[in-house]
């Protein structure tokens, strides 16, 4: 039977959310660059974890999905608050405008604007493709817990005459994780991720590149993320942040059915 994942598009904010979450400079512990020694692994992972957490954020993104059949461009607007509340609304193209995803403590929902209804995304679909992009729903749910779900090991790696911190993450026994290993390459001075590799067995199945580092709220944050599946080198999904506001007031009721409707239909 057909693999469903290519066909099902469930909406879950994923790394793009994380990107939006990247930005809460005020909350982040400062990297304390030590050029020669390897820093404490817990601190680095805590920092990377915290990269994806924010008091609140608001962002506008452009997502470009390059697939075998052509390219699609979506414009997304996203809000986040704390660790587990997020809302993403598709603003264009017109056919999909108003389609939204809501994440709360209780789970994930898609909002179908034509139907004006929410539909719950079952946890079994966490590893399925999100919106026909190369991101999965799982990206969102897991990214918040590098420390909780993985055992991390830190080492130094030389690549293209630059030195990186290399964080190797292996899932803890009961972690709800689909990959067997994650490897992050992080700049040693400011702890900015440059690349993340996702393993299945001993194979890299996809790679995320972080580019276009900008300083936002005193933090160095990659504004563009490129996700590249290994088995389809001609395909990729690019997320770019067009606007990013951090630690701005976000109403609590935005992350409710009413709030979602208001934003999605507005």
């Amino acid at each position: 039977m057909e693999r469903i994942e290519r066909n099902v598009r469930t909406l879950a904010p994923s790394l793009l959310l994380s990107g939006a979450l990247l930005v809460s400079g005020a909350l982040l512990p400062c990297p304390a660059p030590a050029q020669d020694s390897i820093p404490d692994v817990a601190r680095v992972m805590d920092y990377i974890d915290d990269l994806y957490r924010s008091e609140s954020s608001h962002s506008i993104m452009r997502m470009t999905v390059d697939r075998e059949r052509g390219t699609r461009e979506l414009r997304l607007e996203a809000w986040t608050k704390g660790d587990d509340e997020a809302l993403i609304v598709i603003r264009s193209p017109a056919r999909e405008a108003g389609t939204a995803t809501l994440m709360t403590d209780d789970g994930l929902w898609n909002y179908a604007p034509r139907a004006d209804r929410l539909i719950r995304i079952p946890s079994g679909l966490l590893s399925e493709s999100w919106m026909g992009s190369h991101f999965t729903n799982d990206d969102l749910m897991r990214e918040t817990s590098y420390l909780d779900d993985y055992n991390a090991r830190l080492s130094r790696a030389e690549e293209d005459e630059a030195t990186y911190l290399k964080a190797t993450l292996t899932p803890k026994p009961d972690a709800p994780v689909v990959y067997t290993r994650l490897v992050f390459f992080i700049t040693p001075d400011s702890w900015v991720p440059t690349r993340a590799e996702y393993y299945d067995g001993e194979e890299v199945v996809r790679t995320m590149f972080f580019e276009d580092v900008q300083t936002i709220s005193g933090r160095q944050i990659p504004m563009r993320m490129i996700l590249q599946p290994t088995d389809k080198p001609e395909e990729e999904t690019v997320v770019e942040y067009l606007e990013l506001e951090l630690n701005i007031p976000v109403e609590d009721d935005l992350f409710t059915r009413q709030g979602l409707r208001r934003e999605a239909r507005g």
Binding site: N110, A112, L118
Partner: peptide, 30 residues
């Protein structure tokens, strides 16, 4: 009532409201 959500032929996201008018048992498990 139900919501259907799926990837359309043009890559966009089709969604609409459905109403269950019938339930069927065919003996074919798919």
């Amino acid at each position: 009532e139900l919501v259907a959500f799926f990837e359309a032929a043009d890559g966009s996201l089709g969604n609409d409201l459905l109403q269950v008018v019938g339930i069927v048992r065919t003996g074919n498990s798919m």
